[in-house]
């Protein structure tokens, strides 16, 4: 026999009480506490185009400015580091981390400098003079320290490679002398037993493996 569920179970009643208390404590409306049926704010339903709970989508956004130099702005911002600690560039951060309050401000600064007629390099220089070199995603390749940063790994590898090649070449002569004094190879046609051939076959297989 089908038994209809009670209008309000004990568990639901308890949850209602706890949630009401919690909601009143944290100042949230009961609706947000999840006891009402989920509502949908798809276009054309409910308040026209308004989210039911804007607080859960993060910081309100400004509409993206439509500009003719959008690609250039993007390229500039990809060379500027966001200062929120995300390790991303300004463009990536402001289009990804919607909780970041730094990258939108930095974006506005870029737009303002661009509107003043500055080119990409001048904008980057302006950021460096205002925020220091850490504003750039990579240090400028100038000055002893920075150049060392860029060039040291490659220089070390090149030097080690050249040293290795030189070392091997010099060894070559010594090895040739050792080989010359070693036991001469068997003459062509010398008798080789089947056992020795089998040993040779196994040894070569080892080498090729």
């Amino acid at each position: 026999m089908h038994r209809s569920p009670p209008a309000l179970s004990r568990r639901h009643f308890l949850l209602l009480g706890v949630s009401s208390a919690a909601a009143s404590l944290v100042g949230q409306p009961l609706a947000a506490a999840g006891l009402q049926a989920p509502q949908d704010s798809l276009s054309g339903r409910g308040a026209a185009g308004t989210l039911r709970d804007p607080s859960v989508v993060g910081r309100p956004r400004q509409p993206t400015a439509i500009r003719g130099d959008e690609a250039e702005i993007q390229a500039i911002e990809q060379r500027l580091a966001c200062s929120c600690g995300c390790t991303l560039d300004v463009f990536t951060c402001r289009t990804t981390d919607f909780t970041c309050t730094y990258s939108p401000d930095l974006h506005r600064e870029v737009l303002a400098l661009r509107d003043e007629g500055k080119n990409a390099q001048e904008i980057l220089d302006a950021f460096v003079s205002k925020y220091g070199e850490k504003a750039l995603m990579a240090p400028k390749p100038e000055g002893v320290i920075n150049l060392t940063g860029y060039l040291l790994p490659g220089a070390l590898i090149a030097a080690a490679g050249a040293g290795l090649a030189l070392f091997i070449t010099r060894r070559k002569a010594a090895v040739a002398a050792v080989t010359a004094s070693a036991t001469p190879p068997l003459p062509m046609g010398a008798h080789v037993s089947a056992e020795e051939l089998e040993r040779l076959r196994r040894a070569l297989a080892d080498i090729e493996d």
């Binding site: 580091a81 850490k134 504003a135 750039l136 995603m137 990579a138 240090p139 320290i145 790994p153 490659g154």
Partner: peptide, 24 residues
């Protein structure tokens, strides 16, 4: 290292690593 030597903070991000490591 840069901060220790120069006292200046720098960011070493993707462009630096790409420039140094992509050829290698």
């Amino acid at each position: 290292l840069s901060e220790l030597v120069r006292g200046t903070k720098i960011t070493v991000g993707v462009p630096f690593f790409n420039r140094v490591n992509v050829p290698l």
